[in-house]
Design a protein around this nucleic acid. Structure first.
Lengths: 314, 314
DNA sequence: CTGAAAGCGCTTACAG
DNA sequence: CTGAAAGCGCTTACAG
């Protein structure tokens, strides 16, 4: 029993005994059995991270940052990929929740009613990443996607562009929030028109960006700026513009979102919104650790902001 | 006891009893406790996947494919990222091995002696992905990186290029194998020169590709083709060539490796080697499942080949 | 600060 | 095909 206490941190153990126990454990190469621990204590030191996809570098950076913090604190991170699918999300929860993870880190939680129920019943502390929650009792670390969308739109207006389209794919909640920021800003300027919204449900890709550019210009040649919901489609559009010999930003401005790898390498370099995903991953993990320790801060909502990165494409 | 048997597959249980047990479990929402299972049986149904990094889409696709197979078979996949670092690899093993994973899927195993020992002692079945192992007792699914490197070089020779440089970053084992294929092919053609090897240890990126192109041409303006070890640097080089107004493939051919997203969108589209990573992930997982079932095939080595994708950049 | 007792929820191994 | 016994390696809760 004393050994058990010693190896878990050493509270209430004689300092001298503590040391000799640790030395002995070290010498024997003793490692506690996580399964036995989990069975006896009814919790593991695994933490489940749920993200929509890994093919977007954004989520990889988010996960890596969170992982580093959790790993250093002695937790193991488990990664679940929902593919933006409620059914898969539910299956993942059903599969991983029985492992009694100590905590949960989620992005873009689709929240089917069943998933919601499962989560609540499990009583596992949870932090939402990337977005900010409206509910005060929900822990969230991110930034206002809507404000960021509005900021980019305001920038394009500042630059003198007047017919600003919004092109999007993978219409998840965050994309819709960006769209809303764009829409409001244009409406306030009296420049909104519904045909400027080009929303395709398919997953984004550079090839899709090229197609979006074509479709937008074909539908309305007077468009003088396009705000893409993600950098990959913006990059694809930029390359397509180059192929078409279209003058960017003279004839058409192009802007993206997230500042993904390669955006600074484009011709011309891409104007975009830099999302602080690494910091979000880091802070989310720290917040979760606080929740696990029972010392939750009063404010569970952390706005880390965003950065407008103006490059030559606008 | 009968319930335990029933829920684990139902061998040696009366069919009628079996059914009613399953129905009852369903009704009660009973889910077996994985920790108790792991403690009693001394193994979990978690499978550890170790990859060098996630920022390369290659590994994401590999992992997703393997995950799908494992998840469908009732296993949970844990992802560990080594960052090409032996120390981190060892820490990951020390952290995850006590969970008694049922199996291991690894890529680019750096294998420090300590890690090697840990692995052997754990006696966890393991499949190596991407490369092919020379040792008959080691399970591996992949393709010959060296042959693929040779094939690309042969293609460039076929096209009439004579001064073919090899530019690389992130000098891991697979990159070195590709380099070796390139080197041998040039040597046989009597066209090898050591100054054609430009090997930088840093992680690859599009920006690095632009720099590699500059450095190569600065050092030797007669180079008429560059074979990049990965598509991201090739893409960066292609964009840099565009900025310089360099005629590709007329004045300089550019080739990559892996056929990553975006390579088909470049100007001009990039010639590359398509690595069958999704199939490798899939087959690796299936092979591992066979090992776990004790029905290992006689041949533990699966060569899935590669595909030379000739586009306009060469 | 230390430790004896009981139990976490399963599976293994054995008897019937 | 069924089930009683023992135990997996820890932690919780309690007594000293």
């Amino acid at each position: 029993m004393t050994v058990s206490r010693a190896l878990r941190g050493g509270a209430r153990v004689d300092p001298q005994l503590l040391q000799s126990i640790r030395e002995a454990a070290q010498e024997m190469g003793y490692v506690p059995d996580p399964a036995a621990r989990a069975l006896a204590s009814q919790k593991s030191n695994q933490i489940l991270m749920l993200v929509p996809m890994l093919s977007n570098t954004l989520f990889v950076e988010l996960i890596e940052a969170a992982h580093a913090v959790l790993f250093a604190a002695g937790y193991q991170a488990m990664i679940g990929v929902t593919h933006y699918d409620r059914e898969q999300e539910l299956q993942l929860l059903q599969s991983y929740l029985p492992l009694r993870p100590a905590g949960l880190l989620v992005t873009g939680f689709e929240q089917s009613p069943q998933a919601q129920t499962l989560l609540e019943q499990s009583r596992v502390p949870c932090v939402h990443m990337m977005e900010l929650s409206d509910a005060a009792e929900v822990a969230s670390v991110g930034f206002s996607q809507q404000q960021a969308g509005a900021a980019m739109t305001a920038h394009l207006l500042d630059r003198g562009y007047r017919r600003i389209a919004f092109c999007a794919g993978q219409l998840d909640a965050r994309v819709m929030q960006r769209a809303s920021g764009w829409r409001q800003t244009l409406q306030r300027a009296g420049l909104y028109a519904s045909e400027l919204e080009i929303m395709w449900p398919q997953p984004t890709s550079m090839a899709m960006g090229a197609q979006l550019l074509q479709a937008t210009l074909a539908q309305d040649p007077t468009v003088d700026a396009i705000f893409f919901c993600n950098d990959d489609i913006a990059q694809g559009a930029l390359l397509q513009a180059l192929r078409l010999g279209l003058d960017v930003p003279g004839k058409l401005a192009i802007a993206g979102f997230n500042d993904l790898p390669g955006s600074d390498q484009m011709i011309p370099p891409l104007t975009t919104i830099r999302s602080p995903r690494a910091r979000i991953g880091d802070e989310s993990a720290r917040l979760l650790l606080q929740l696990l320790d029972g010392k939750a801060p009063a404010v569970l909502r952390r706005d880390l902001g965003y950065e407008l990165v103006v490059r030559a494409s606008s």
